[in-house]
């Protein structure tokens, strides 16, 4: 049994007091340390905003006017541009064009870039006189310009970096001719991407060049019978609807060719939906995970990848070289790669 002792009680109180004192002191120091630590983290977050996102201090200022939209090619193109900007010490000012058919916005950005005295412009505009005028005006102001879409390449300060659509059409036709197991000629339906608004009927569009490339092969080899060509130029009528239309109107169709990744995946989905796997095969453009899956399943025979990243990277390289007064070719072809079940991962 414990006996009460004032001395023992006093010692216990002293011990308790010292323990409390030590605990409070530790708490105080720890909380002060934590406060300093979290203050440091706040500072880090604040200072992060002043970090140079372009790596080293950039030497050039390039304006990227791009309608990336939902096209994987242009998304990859943009990534390539930004990465190349870091490599070539160029600050990339990205001006996103929200409406792919609104050329005024593209033109306005070109004007702004002109007034802002940028060192170079990378733009994927379409075909309009105001666009050409703005491009030429900027070029006259001494700004180097790289276009991502084929247009009038008649200015010494203009370069085209991208796919040679004639070659692209040839490759596509050759791939299509191998796509179907049915006897030649295979019945082909083509779904082309939207056409940019143009008021100049003399201009030759990328789709025209592509189709002429395909036509050359079709004529020489006679293995393909083009039964229809459709343009996906409306957001309301997507590739899925167009595929359904083709399947409904042309039941003898063997191959459907699409010119971008989104349309390719959409066409494949409809074939699966209509239970036409093995009957109709898709030849597409662009390589995404979904498309890889369809290639493995045999729904998509193969695709042509236009190498958007390389095109974007090369665009900056050309601009940087051009600003540095080194000679740059006015036409730089980025060849498309072919992927089938044989060479995908």
């Amino acid at each position: 049994m414990d006996r009460y002792s004032p001395v023992l009680e006093g010692n216990r109180m002293k011990w308790l007091y010292k323990t409390l004192l030590a605990l409070l002191f530790i708490t105080m120091v720890t909380s002060a340390g934590l406060a300093a630590y979290y203050f440091g983290l706040v500072n880090q977050v604040y200072d992060k905003s002043t970090h140079n996102i372009f790596g080293e201090q950039p030497k050039y200022h390039f304006s990227l006017v791009l309608n990336a939209g939902d096209d994987d090619y242009w998304q990859s193109f943009k990534e390539g541009v930004i990465e190349a900007g870091k490599v070539y010490h160029a600050a990339i000012e990205y001006n996103s064009v929200t409406d792919p058919l609104d050329m005024d916005q593209v033109v306005e950005y070109i004007h702004i870039a002109n007034k802002s005295r940028v060192d170079g412009i990378i733009v994927n505009g379409g075909y309009s006189s105001s666009y050409s005028e703005a491009i030429n005006k900027a070029a006259e102001s001494g700004i180097h310009i790289v276009v991502g879409m084929v247009g009038s390449v008649d200015n010494q300060r203009l370069s085209y970096v991208g796919t040679n659509f004639y070659d692209f059409g040839v490759k596509a036709a050759k791939l299509i001719s191998q796509a179907s197991s049915k006897a030649s000629p295979v019945n082909l339906a083509v779904i082309l991407s939207h056409e940019s608004a143009t008021d100049d009927k003399t201009m030759v569009s990328q789709n025209d060049i592509l189709m002429s490339g395909m036509a050359s092969v079709m004529e020489s080899e006679k293995k393909i019978n083009l039964i229809t060509t459709l343009y996906r130029n409306s957001h309301l009528l997507g590739a899925e609807d167009l595929t359904r239309c083709i399947l409904a109107e042309y039941p003898n169709v063997d191959v459907i060719f699409c010119t971008n990744a989104k349309d390719t995946a959409a066409a494949a989905r409809v074939i699966v939906e209509r239970n036409l796997v093995g009957e109709v095969v898709v030849v597409g453009t662009g390589l995404t995970d979904e498309i890889k899956h369809y290639i493995k399943k045999g729904i998509v025979f193969g695709v042509l990848d236009r190498n958007g990243y390389n095109a974007g990277f090369k665009s900056v390289e050309v601009l940087a070289g051009s600003v540095a007064d080194s000679f740059q070719s006015s036409y730089i072809n980025i060849p498309a790669d072919i992927y089938t079940a044989i060479n995908i991962e």
């Binding site: 004192l21 409070l24 105080m28 909380s31 002060a32 979290y38 977050v45 905003s49």
Partner: peptide, 30 residues
């Protein structure tokens, strides 16, 4: 930036609160 900072700020506020309380208790004890 504010969203990133606010989490740390909340923790900072808690640490400060604990600091104030511990200092008050320490003073009271002394």
């Amino acid at each position: 930036q504010y969203l990133d900072m606010s989490e740390h700020l909340n923790k900072l506020r808690t640490a400060n609160f604990v600091l104030i309380i511990s200092v008050i208790l320490l003073n009271v004890l002394v």
